[in-house]
Simulated scan of single mutants.
Amino acid sequence: MALIHSATISPTKLELLAAWLPGRSWFTGDPNVRRLGAYRFDDPAGEVGLEALIVRSDGPVLHTPLTYRDAPLAGADDFLVGTTEHSVLGKRWVYDGCADPVWVAAAASVVVGDGGQAEEIFATDGQQQRREPSATVAGSGSAGRSPVIDAVTCHDDGGTTVVRGGGVELVVVRVVGTEISVTDTLTGAWSGGSGVLAGIR
């Protein structure tokens, strides 16, 4: 379950992306992107926020996994998207999810069919209610065992990022529509679009 607070965030997630995207090898176009949808995973420990935004400006649709932490992630300075002030949770360190073992473990779990996306619960004025996600994802695996991932390495490869950890190789599609050769996939759908977002090979 992902608990989402009614809060202000400064800078916003899209503002963070506007500053971060121009430095990515797989990015072209105007960095002032608009959000098409988003999905979330659960952190079993309940400590790290796990979200992936589907965005677009004047170029292709992009897939941007992010993690939100209440303290810096050791050894991940090169993958810091930025910091933001959350009116409820305080300062948050926002990382590229491909470099965060918590996001990678959650994504791999869904790909192999041993998990699903998080149920979104919106909290406001002391009340909680379920919210429909703006993007849905599903893995093609058939209840395989989730890999244990506590450290990762990653590098960009064309329109993808290749992540290794826990004995698996997760290929994360950055530029939606990029073809990948994998055994199991994570497929997403959002208003006006769909596509393969990741896979394991």
Rank of each mutant, 00 (worst) to 15 (best):
G97Q: 02
W93D: 02
G29W: 02
C154V: 06
R24F: 04
F41M: 08
G166T: 04
T160Y: 04
A99W: 00
T84E: 14
Y68S: 00
A99N: 02
A74D: 13
T12K: 12
V176Y: 01
G37C: 09
G59M: 07
A105C: 08
L89Q: 07
G192M: 12
G166N: 12
Q128C: 14
G23Q: 11
T187E: 14
I180M: 07
K13R: 14
A189C: 13
I180S: 00
R164P: 01
A135N: 02
V162E: 05
Q127I: 12
A19W: 03
P44F: 02
S109P: 01
E120A: 06
K13Q: 07
D156Y: 07
Q128K: 12
L14A: 08
S6Q: 14
D30G: 02
C154H: 09
D114A: 15
E85I: 13
D184Q: 10
V61H: 05
L3K: 14
K91V: 15
G113T: 01
D96C: 03
Q117C: 06
G165N: 13
V175Q: 11
T12Q: 12
D184L: 04
K13Y: 06
D157P: 06
I200N: 00
G195A: 11
G97W: 00
V33A: 06
G113H: 01
E15Q: 15
I200W: 00
R130K: 15
T183V: 14
L170M: 14
R201N: 15
G82H: 09
I4T: 09
V176F: 06
T178H: 08
A189K: 15
A189M: 13
G75W: 11
A7R: 15
S6I: 10
G116K: 09
A151I: 04
Q117G: 10
I4A: 04
G46P: 02
R174N: 13
D96F: 06
K13C: 08
E179A: 15
L89D: 08
A45G: 06
D30A: 08
V111M: 01
T28D: 13
Q129A: 12
V111Y: 04
F27M: 06
G144H: 12
T160D: 03
W190C: 10
D78F: 02
D58L: 08
A123L: 14
S191T: 15
G46Q: 07
L14V: 03
A99C: 08
G75M: 10
D125P: 02
V168N: 07
P31H: 05
G159F: 02
T84L: 15
R24D: 09
V33E: 03
A99T: 00
A138D: 12
E132L: 13
G75I: 09
S146L: 13
D114V: 00
T187S: 15
H86I: 11
A2Q: 10
L73R: 10
E120V: 10
V163Q: 02
M1H: 12
G199F: 01
T83Q: 14
